[in-house]
């Protein structure tokens, strides 16, 4: 019981770091990418596998292009954030959902997913 109050504090600290975009620590970035992968694969969250082939994911769809060599293709992280946040803004005809605009994913979650994308 005595240790209990400590835990939420830790989580808050971590979340704050994520929010602030503290990607400087490699360990932290690594865990954010792992979290991002989970969010990307989760059917109730990103569910990106519905449309994209992604390394490590089962039963991928083919509606969108395979997500690979992302870092080479999009060296600028902001572009990736923009794609995941609101791809219809870049391409009005796209079938890719506007994850940020329609609040399917939070800004934090999108940031974690972009970290994951950059490992592909």
């Amino acid at each position: 019981m005595t240790a209990f109050p400590q835990k939420p504090a830790l989580i808050v600290a971590f979340a704050t770091a994520v929010l602030a975009g503290a990607w400087t620590s490699p360990a932290l970035a690594q865990s954010a990418a792992t979290e991002g992968q989970k969010l990307a694969f989760d059917r109730g969250k990103g569910n990106c596998l519905t449309c994209h082939v992604i390394k490590g994911g089962d039963l991928p769809g083919t509606i969108g292009p395979a997500l690979k060599d992302i870092k080479a293709k999009y060296p600028d992280r902001d572009t990736l954030v923009a794609i995941v946040t609101d791809e219809p803004k870049r391409n009005p005809q796209t079938v890719m959902p506007p994850f940020g605009r329609n609040r399917i994913l939070t800004e934090q979650e999108i940031n974690a997913i972009v970290d994951f994308l950059q490992t592909l």
């Binding site: 596998l49 519905t50 769809g61 509606i63 005809q93 079938v95 959902p97 329609n102």
Partner: peptide, 18 residues
Amino acid sequence: LNFSCASCHVQSPGERIR
């Protein structure tokens, strides 16, 4: 998710969705 019927059955027929 911002889909129309056409998103799947006009724009993407033949593609895999999962």
